[in-house]
């Protein structure tokens, strides 16, 4: 990461580091914006990281 040059413009804050927040953050950086991803726990991933497999393909979720 690093520090944003101009703090005001071109930055977006994403609140929540679950699958939704992570995806939004990834897409925003790809679209040319600096993202602050804010997560209250020690790791991103949220509830999806706790899942063993996912429906309906039963793929591993990690």
């Amino acid at each position: 990461m690093g520090q944003a040059k101009d703090k005001k413009s071109g930055t977006v804050m994403v609140v929540g580091g679950g699958i939704a927040g992570v995806q939004a953050a990834l897409d925003l950086t790809e679209l040319g914006y600096y993202v602050y991803l804010v997560e209250k726990s020690a790791a991103i991933g949220g509830a999806m990281a706790q899942l063993d497999k996912t429906f309906p393909t039963n793929d591993c979720s990690l």
């Binding site: 413009s9 995806q23 914006y33 600096y34």
Partner: peptide, 29 residues
């Protein structure tokens, strides 16, 4: 579920990007 959350996230990213389109790339390092 997960796919719908992922879809919404991409969509929200697109909407946010549209809102501040004039600042695109300004803060990228």
């Amino acid at each position: 579920d997960i796919p719908e959350s992922v879809t919404q996230s991409s969509a929200a990213a697109g909407l946010a990007a549209g809102l501040i389109v004039k600042d695109r790339g300004k803060a990228l390092v």
